[in-house]
Design a protein around this nucleic acid. Sequence first.
DNA 1: CCAAAAGTGTTCACCGTACACCCATGA
DNA 2: TCATGGGTGTACGGTGAACACTTTTGG
Lengths: 228, 228
Amino acid sequence: MRAPEQTFSYRYPHPAVTTDVVVFTIREQRLHLLLIQRANPPFQGQWALPGGFLDIDEDIDACAARELAEETGLSDLYLEQLYTFGTPRRDPRERVISVAYYALVSNDRIPEPVASSDAAAVAWFPFDALPDTAFDHAAIIAKAHERLVAKLDYSSIALQFMPEHFTLGELQAVYETLLNDELDKRNFRKRILSLDIIEDTGEQKRNGKHRPARAYRARRPNRVEIIK
Amino acid sequence: MRAPEQTFSYRYPHPAVTTDVVVFTIREQRLHLLLIQRANPPFQGQWALPGGFLDIDEDIDACAARELAEETGLSDLYLEQLYTFGTPRRDPRERVISVAYYALVSNDRIPEPVASSDAAAVAWFPFDALPDTAFDHAAIIAKAHERLVAKLDYSSIALQFMPEHFTLGELQAVYETLLNDELDKRNFRKRILSLDIIEDTGEQKRNGKHRPARAYRARRPNRVEIIK
DNA sequence: CCAAAAGTGTTCACCGTACACCCATGA
DNA sequence: TCATGGGTGTACGGTGAACACTTTTGG
């Protein structure tokens, strides 16, 4: 631990740098995102994105992953830098530059996340029923959603929402949720299989009380393929 | 001016924040970019991206525009945030987070840029014949190029390279340079005109000693349209 | 009249879209 | 046997790609 009276001096003023992470998942056919309830001022008690200050010797990506793990218990997810937000008075305490990330979690690995010293509570909210959020986090969330939807089209990013083994029906449901549209089953299967991004595991997966379906897996685990 | 002995103290160490800008243009059918020769250590005398430290009350976008104007004399260009680079030891002086931007200049507004106190010289280099660059600027340049080429496909970003009035032949040459490929004249015209992003000015433009061509202009000046 | 860029349509292959029925399972 | 999701093929239309000749101008 650092001695509490220690200070760090610079010839010119330096901003603080934080990371904030927009974590998406799909639950019950709806897009959700993870917010924490702030334990400390400013905006104490308000919902906000998980995130926090960059350590002086820490890589930015590592900071995003660490803050996410500390505040929500989630680790080892797909994490991508989104945009850097730095409007001068976005934080009332001091000048803060936030490097925003977004993350996707597969829908079988959704621990009901635990709170930490910075987060009084952690909860999933449906994307279309978000509470008011602290700072400029609404703008960060909007940008993350825009990026997510744009990437659906030309990358295999949707696979990041899937568990290790999944069926084509489940994958189609994820696309339908994200695109907010219904898709034709035969066309969907043809297109996805022709992209060569998933492979048959040989196993079967039983979802309801109905006919079991073939189980597939992503061809390259943890990678997002750019299509064409 | 700030008194030279003044310092700024924080309870936790803060990184410095800079912006760096990758400025592209097209000259003589080749993609070029603008580098400055560093007037001061570190990397004194080496070529680098124009950029510099963020003022404590300055918006990040404004910082990129300001540094660009100060070091190169260029202003009022298409400027878009690219990515934030912050590997711990990328700058030997202290921890520096660089918010990178890229900019596009139309090929009629290429002032041979002037040097300033931070830049001993400023010059355009062909993209395929770049000198060694300072810091991690080679990685920033690579990422900017990747973004530029990707955006060609689904946006009207190429129009940013064009002067106010231009011909279809000139526009096609820009696409050919960026894609490093030849395009069919008839197909190109059909596609571009169907996108409805340029309009006939009614005027003509004489390029060589040959038949004059219709002059077009971008339908929305200074905007980048997302196609589809 | 020659050189050089401007301007202009049609054909074909491929891909995305629309569309309906039988199968396997558990209750 | 019924309800529910799993699994499969074909026909059509639109879009992108290939392709050649005439026009206008300056020298």
